[in-house]
Simulated scan of single mutants.
Amino acid sequence: MGKIDGKVVLITGCSTGLGKQQAIRMAEEGANLAICARNMDKLNETKRICEEAGAEVLAMSVDIMDYDSLVAFVDATAERFGRIDVLVNNAHTITIPKPFLDKTIEDLDVEMKSSVYAYWHLMKLCFPHMRDREGAGASIVNFASEAAVMGDSLYAPYAAAKEAVRGLSRVVAREWGQYNIRVNTLCPNGMTENASGGLTSLSEEARAHVQAAFINNPFRRAGSPYEDVAPVTVFLASDDSRWITGQNIHADGGALINA
């Protein structure tokens, strides 16, 4: 018996990286899934793995920066499954890390639209399908970042977008508790193929900075998206987290430790 048996989970950005591994883990824990990404070929691979784990899966090509695309995705999910129990806002388009003076307003636009704007839209679109669920209710997990909490160099647009996500999530958590919906943010540390593959495109300074960030924790290793991060998302999706809302969870191996 899985931790989220029978729950319908809508999760974005599942063709690769954290999103793919979370989708797989959730399928193994009994969820049915609505997954999306821009690259349909890679998304279909995630779909295949999840179906082999026993999940019913809706997979759609979606540009999360396009509102009409988000509407179509949520509508298709509701039509297919009849409800949405969990929303995981995972997808985010990150621009190349550079000093603030080298960043442009276009960089900020991309990161805001693919993060806080998309999360804003999806929460509102999913709300009618999540509200007033009996028992432990529904759950929203919005991905934030330790890089934003700490104000990491080279990540100005990313930090701005991810801190906006945290602020928005706290407000929605306060307002939607009355509808039995909990809202939390998750700051992960997991070395994905996207992160490792993207290192070659960075300057030597930026590459060293990123590599150090992934192992800057008491365990002195990078986290595994499947083994270290995805179980935390499963917990937040499960009924075991029924009394947790408005919180920011660090699944980062202790990279950030405070009172």
Rank of each mutant, 00 (worst) to 15 (best):
G2I: 11
G2D: 08
G2A: 08
D5K: 07
D5T: 09
D5Q: 12
G6W: 11
G6L: 09
G6H: 11
V8Y: 08
V9T: 13
L10F: 15
I11P: 10
T12D: 09
T12L: 03
G13R: 02
G13Y: 09
G13N: 05
C14L: 12
C14W: 13
C14R: 10
S15M: 08
S15P: 07
S15T: 10
T16F: 07
T16I: 12
T16S: 06
T16V: 14
G17A: 04
G17E: 14
G17F: 01
G17Q: 03
L18V: 03
L18E: 03
L18F: 02
L18T: 00
L18P: 00
L18K: 03
G19I: 07
G19A: 06
K20T: 00
K20R: 15
K20G: 00
Q21T: 03
Q21R: 12
Q21V: 05
Q21N: 13
Q22Y: 02
A23N: 04
A23V: 01
A23W: 08
A23T: 12
A23Y: 02
I24S: 02
I24N: 05
R25F: 04
R25N: 10
M26C: 13
M26L: 15
A27H: 10
E28R: 13
E28S: 01
E29S: 10
E29W: 08
G30D: 12
G30C: 11
N32C: 11
N32Q: 11
N32M: 07
L33Q: 06
A34V: 13
C36H: 11
C36N: 12
A37S: 15
A37K: 06
R38A: 00
N39Q: 08
N39G: 01
N39A: 03
M40P: 00
D41W: 04
D41F: 02
K42A: 01
K42T: 06
L43E: 08
L43P: 12
N44E: 14
N44G: 04
E45C: 06
T46C: 06
K47P: 04
K47H: 03
R48V: 02
R48G: 05
I49Q: 02
C50E: 04
C50T: 00
C50Q: 06
E51P: 09
E51A: 05
E52M: 14
A53P: 13
A53Q: 10
G54Y: 14
G54E: 06
G54H: 08
G54F: 12
G54D: 13
G54Q: 09
G54V: 10
A55I: 04
A55E: 05
A55F: 06
A55M: 12
A55W: 07
E56V: 03
E56T: 05
E56A: 09
V57K: 02
V57T: 00
L58R: 08
A59C: 01
A59E: 00
M60H: 03
M60D: 07
S61E: 15
V62N: 02
V62W: 03
D63Y: 01
D63N: 15
I64D: 07
I64W: 07
I64Y: 04
M65H: 00
M65T: 15
M65E: 15
D66E: 15
D66S: 14
Y67S: 09
Y67D: 14
Y67L: 14
D68P: 04
D68V: 10
D68E: 15
S69W: 05
S69M: 11
S69Y: 09
S69F: 10
S69G: 14
